[in-house]
């Protein structure tokens, strides 16, 4: 028996909107720790890792570890039927091939349930090692989304370089080149508007911009985004999910042959 009640149901709606275009089918894993997902895109270039900790749910019952295969597009369709202020409860019986999403309006005057078929999803879990990153950049998530969108109108790849000066995003294409430099800036009214550049070693890596643009669909989840970079390692783009966990995107770099 599985029963997870999430008062801030909009979080789950936002998570699905953030990942449904990158990953088609995935297994949601449920354990005492929380509700999680790890999945790669079809080309195995990017990886999504979601964690919603059990403590973040108002009610969390998961009698035994289970893995539920879902088509994310279908799940997103169902969650779109929940209001932004609705409480969402996920329910599944042992051995059942369906999951039920129950939506309750804040005033309890409307209660809906949507039952979705589960599916078998072949997925390989990858071990993500703890890494010391050469550089960690924290910036407003909307700013990062703006940069990715702007640069993708000029080129297909972005070079992200972190130096003492700050973080530089560069691209080039048929029509020309573009460089955006963000300097550390902590003299802001609100902490979420700060840009913080922590650098242990200078680092410069090249990535496909279209993946970054897909990751920025996580922007509604958090005011800030953290970008962790190390030479010849996948970059981590992380959106924290307030008091619950995180949505992390890993992207393999392009490396000169």
């Amino acid at each position: 028996m599985l029963e997870l009640r999430l008062v801030q149901g909009s979080l789950l709606k936002k998570v699905l909107e953030a990942i449904k275009d990158l990953v088609t089918d995935a297994n949601f894993d449920c354990s005492a720790t929380g509700f999680s997902l790890q999945a790669m895109d079809s080309s195995h270039v990017a990886l999504v890792s979601l964690l919603l900790r059990s403590e973040g749910f108002e009610h969390y019952r998961c009698d035994r570890n289970i893995s539920m295969g879902m088509n994310l597009n279908n799940m997103a369709k169902m969650l779109k039927c929940a209001g932004n202020d609705d409480i969402i409860t996920l329910k599944a019986d042992d051995g059942s091939d369906t999951v039920t999403f129950m939506f309750e309006s804040p005033t309890q005057d409307k209660i809906s349930d949507f039952e979705m078929k589960l599916m078998d999803v072949d997925s390989e879990h990858l071990g993500i090692p703890e890494a010391e990153y050469h550089a960690i950049v924290r910036m407003p998530s909307t700013e990062f989304a703006r940069i990715c969108k702007d640069l993708s109108s000029i080129g297909d790849t972005v070079v992200i370089s972190v130096t003492k000066e700050g973080v530089k995003f560069s691209t080039s294409g048929d029509i020309g080149t573009a460089n955006v430099v963000c300097r550390q800036n902590t003299t802001v009214d609100k902490p979420e508007d700060a840009t913080i550049v922590e650098m242990n070693e200078p680092v410069s890596l090249t990535f496909a911009l279209r993946y970054f643009n897909s990751f920025t669909k996580g922007t509604p989840l958090s005011n800030t985004v953290t970008i962790s970079l190390s030479s010849e390692l996948p970059v981590v783009v992380e959106y924290k999910i307030a008091e619950m966990g995180h949505l992390r995107f890993y992207l393999a770099p392009k490396i000169e042959e």
């Binding site: 071990g127 993500i128 790849t157 890993y250 393999a252």
Partner: peptide, 14 residues
């Protein structure tokens, strides 16, 4: 030329 790597090059299967 920069070649796109795959995630599985960096992270091993569990």
């Amino acid at each position: 030329v920069n070649q796109q790597r795959q995630i599985t090059t960096f992270f091993a299967k569990k």
